[in-house]
C-alpha cells in the first residue's frame, strides 16, 4: 500500500474524457448538419436563376436551373397546421380519457394502444393512405365541396382523393400519439390536492378538470402540440406517396394541390442532377431550420413551465 492516499485512480481520467467527448460528438454532429447542408447547397443556389425564397417552381435539373422554396414551404406549413388543428383536440381528449376517465385498471393498457399508433412506420401509413384513405376520402371531400364550398378552403371545381386534406389527415394520425402521450403525462401530474379542492366545492368531473387540471397542464399541451408540429413538418414518406406534388400556392385543400419540402426531397431525389441534389439539400436546410425553431420554442415552453411549477410550489 504505497500508493498516496488521495491520488486520482488510474482509468478515471480516460473514462471521464471518453464520456465527455461523446457529449461533444453530439454537439459536433448538430453543427455539422448545418455546415454540410450549407456547403453543399451553395453551388446550386449560385446556379439558380431565380430567388430561392420566393420562387414557386422547382426545375433545378434544367440547363438554366429555376427553383425556389415558396410553394414547398407553403405546403409544409399548411399541411402541418391542418394536421395540428385536427390532432390536438383529439389528442387532448385521448389524454384526458386515459388520465381521468378510463377505469384505472384499463388506463395503462389503453394508453399503450394509442402508443402503438406511433410504432407504425411512416411508410406503412403512406401505403395505407394510398391504398385506402385516398379513395375513401373522395366522398366526404365531395360532400364538403358540395355543401361548404362557400368556405374558401373547401371550394374548387375538382375534388380529388390525393389532396392536401388527405395528406394532413395522415399527418394528424401520425402526430396524435406524441401529443397524447405528453399531454397524458402532464394531466397525470396535476396536483391531487387541487383536484380534491374543486370536487369538495361541488364541481362535476368536467368542472374539476377545467379548474384544476387544464390550467396546470396547459404549458405541457402547448409543448406537445409544438413537438407534434415539428414532427409533422419533417414527415416524409407517408405524404410523399399522397401529395399530388404540384408547385402552386392554393388554399383549396380538396383539390389537386399540395406538396411539402420533405415529400419533394423523396420524390425528386431519384432523377436529380448534381445541381438538383444541391437544390434539394438547400430545401432540406430550410426544413432543418424551421423544425429547429419549432422544437426550440417547444423546449422554451417546458423550461418556463418548470419555473412556474417552482413558483407555485
Amino acid at each position: 500500500m504505497r500508493r498516496p492516499a488521495f491520488r486520482r485512480s488510474r482509468g478515471d481520467g480516460p473514462f471521464r474524457f471518453l464520456s465527455t467527448a461523446s457529449g461533444i460528438v453530439l454537439l459536433v454532429i448538430m453543427a455539422a448538419i448545418g455546415v454540410f447542408l450549407v456547403v453543399k447547397a451553395i453551388p446550386a443556389l449560385q446556379a439558380n436563376t431565380s430567388h430561392f425564397l420566393t420562387e414557386l417552381t422547382w426545375n433545378p435539373n434544367a440547363t438554366q436551373p429555376v427553383f425556389g422554396i415558396g410553394a414547398l414551404a407553403f405546403g409544409t406549413l399548411i399541411s402541418s397546421f391542418i394536421a395540428l388543428i385536427i390532432a390536438t383536440p383529439v389528442a387532448v381528449g385521448v389524454a384526458l380519457f386515459i388520465s381521468h376517465y378510463a377505469p384505472r385498471r384499463l388506463a395503462s393498457a389503453l394508453g399503450y394502444l394509442v402508443d402503438l399508433l406511433a410504432a407504425v412506420p411512416s411508410v406503412v401509413y403512406g401505403l395505407w393512405g394510398v391504398a385506402f384513405l385516398v379513395p375513401f376520402m373522395l366522398s366526404p371531400s365531395s360532400f364538403l365541396n358540395k355543401y361548404f364550398a362557400w368556405i374558401p378552403i373547401f371550394g374548387g371545381d375538382q375534388v380529388v382523393g390525393k389532396s392536401m386534406l388527405t395528406a394532413s389527415l395522415v399527418l394528424a394520425i401520425m402526430i396524435l400519439p406524441i401529443i397524447a402521450a405528453i399531454s397524458r403525462e402532464v394531466f397525470l401530474q396535476a396536483p391531487r390536492i387541487q383536484e380534491e379542492a374543486a370536487l369538495a366545492l361541488g364541481a362535476t368531473r368536467w368542472e374539476m378538470i377545467r379548474m384544476a387540471v387544464l390550467p396546470f397542464g396547459r404549458p405541457g399541451v402547448i409543448t406537445a402540440a409544438l413537438l407534434g408540429l415539428g414532427r409533422a413538418m419533417g414527415e416524409t414518406i407517408a405524404v410523399a406517396l399522397i401529395f399530388p406534388a404540384t408547385f402552386t400556392i392554393s388554399f383549396r385543400i380538396l383539390s389537386a394541390n399540395g406538396n411539402s419540402i420533405a415529400a419533394n426531397i423523396a420524390n425528386g431525389f431519384g432523377e436529380a442532377t448534381p445541381i438538383g441534389r444541391g437544390a434539394l439539400i438547400a430545401s432540406g436546410l430550410v426544413l432543418f431550420l424551421i423544425t429547429l425553431l419549432v422544437n426550440t420554442a417547444a423546449r422554451l415552453v417546458i423550461a418556463r413551465r418548470k419555473e412556474y411549477a417552482r413558483a407555485a410550489a
Binding site: L27, R231, A262, G284
Partner: peptide, 27 residues
C-alpha cells in the same frame, strides 16, 4: 457544457429523418 449537451439532445430528437439522410448525403 452539460446543460448545452442536454439542450441539444432535445433538439436532436426533433431532427427530421429526411434531414439526417441529407446530411449523410452531403457529408
Amino acid at each position: 457544457l452539460s446543460r448545452i449537451v442536454s439542450f441539444f439532445v432535445d433538439v436532436m430528437t426533433g431532427v427530421p429523418s429526411v434531414v439526417s439522410g441529407l446530411f449523410i448525403l452531403a457529408f
